[in-house]
Design a protein around this nucleic acid. Sequence first.
DNA 1: CTGAAAGCGCTTACAG
DNA 2: CTGAAAGCGCTTACAG
Lengths: 354, 354
Amino acid sequence: MKNKILMADKSRLVKQASARNAQVVTLDMVAQLAGVSPSTVSRILNGTAVVSGLKKTAVDDAIAKLGFVPNPMARGLAGGRTLSIGVITQAIDSPFYGVALSGIEYELDRAGYSALYVSGHWDAKEESKCIDVLRSRRVDGIIVLTGRLSDQTLKTCAKTIPVVVTGRSLKAPGLFSLNFDNFEGGRMATQHLLDLGHRRIVFIAGAPDHPDANERLRGYRAALEAAGLVYDPTLVLAGDFRESSGLQAVTQLLGQKCSFTAIFAANDQMAFGAALGLHRSGLRVPRDVSLIGFDDLPMAMYAAPPLSSIHESAYELGCLAATSMLQLLNGVKPLGQVPAPLLVVRESSAPPLN
Amino acid sequence: MKNKILMADKSRLVKQASARNAQVVTLDMVAQLAGVSPSTVSRILNGTAVVSGLKKTAVDDAIAKLGFVPNPMARGLAGGRTLSIGVITQAIDSPFYGVALSGIEYELDRAGYSALYVSGHWDAKEESKCIDVLRSRRVDGIIVLTGRLSDQTLKTCAKTIPVVVTGRSLKAPGLFSLNFDNFEGGRMATQHLLDLGHRRIVFIAGAPDHPDANERLRGYRAALEAAGLVYDPTLVLAGDFRESSGLQAVTQLLGQKCSFTAIFAANDQMAFGAALGLHRSGLRVPRDVSLIGFDDLPMAMYAAPPLSSIHESAYELGCLAATSMLQLLNGVKPLGQVPAPLLVVRESSAPPLN
DNA sequence: CTGAAAGCGCTTACAG
DNA sequence: CTGAAAGCGCTTACAG
């Protein structure tokens, strides 16, 4: 008798399954096989309620036997969540943010969430569009890796969806910010060059309006002033965080016969560009010019010569951003903090010649 | 009279909307406002059927007025598709694949699709898990950026879901492959060094079992043999496509006092590592040793000295993979082809000293 | 060309 | 502790 019922059930299952996709196992099928209601299966899956041991075992067995995997879309539709987190990055191929993304991916994956990456391309308008795209995809939360969005925009956004933002300090309901001490990092880099005996130190700035960039410049100025040096604006060149702008800055500098013995680039990529500019002019690092970057990209140690830099752990930043988001989602107050900047001295910085 | 109905409708809309999320506008609301059935709105949205002009205008107006954005999950559940494509990459922070991802992102975005990135970390088992994850997310197709999955696994996978794979030539139903001519690229790089007069040319190999790596090695051998040189296995060192393995290879080489005048690294990252190894030993590029890489990463031109390489357009590869997937999804036979390899001569390669 | 209706695979009050 | 039922927001045969 029991067998007969089982067989009848099975043929029914097969029929259902083949409707659209032969592989699809549904929660209903699990419920039937386990002899419980779909509600019970759902509750076991989500840990929503305490279920008697026997039923739980039966359900777990059925899940294993059938190889059941919940359909995230049905879950999302019914439960009002997607188990996916939107991540706004500047460029998915950025050497710095790429590492952060892998940290995010790691932590989210552990918690059963997926990441949806969208690129803002260093443009506030595009970043706004990213938010729209992510909203339409119904992500459960948004991680914003720095960028140019205004504080106000972020606060408004956080009213309807949890937001974690890096690269600034902001307090608002539903929002958590993770800020790296760019000021201190900028100060340390400059201080390192001062300690070596440099006095004419060039600063190649990052993308204008970017909080990171501004803070690093502030750190540069602070170190200079603390050393009793006057801030010389002709030593501060514009940049945009890309290699090409570092090259351009050095070319310009050399063109106007500006005298200097060291360069602090607001990120490693620009430092690489600057190094090329020096190389092209026959200037050697660090003999003729000392060079220090910022970020400590994986590539920094493979530059020739290996680049001194301020270490900022992108991977850890990504992990932190992800775990903070998860906490926000679970109603836990995030308390994580980004590690302090660290000076990494390699071979690109040395005392000046004379 | 008409006004009254509209007002009544509105209050109903508000009630519905506030149920879960105050911002949510549904297709039903659009239908009501436009005075048509939900089916019609759906058909207009999807271009599934020809709809009379008047109704279309009414619906478009209603969509605009309400700021309606279709819920992708409901769409997915009902329509059996998610408008999302899974992308299996080796590491989301890979300098090479990162650029490919941005190409994929660009093309997919244009078509209203999203990408779901998962990383295989150069491991066949992890890549298999990636497929499972993507399946459970119900992606409409899977793009596999090279990797170690067996041909058989890919073919099997393609039976139930469209697959585009790069880095190999494979024919199977539901599958399209995009292969870069790594053999020719390897040959060209080696030929370049031969043309400069080098005879003792080291090859630093890529990750074992990776088709890219094997092909580049084959190209190396072919060029050597065409030049009438005997293949010397002691000149071929193991690598894994990472900087560190390039460094290690050179260290090993120098340790065993192997004589050579040039190095061909199977990718730029290993070339950077090799450059560091040479630098540490006081050897200069290209005076003492010529160096050529493969991929032509954005960083290659910023190396010191700028690195000669074989150009492979990762961005274009990504675009091609994405458009091919879109074609597969639309029942169109993809015909795209990856551009041929291109030799880029910079400053890291020169004739040998003697 | 267009509607009414059923259904996609789940979750969650609502009742016991 | 557990079910039956309604509903999430769409799409798609099925009828006109």
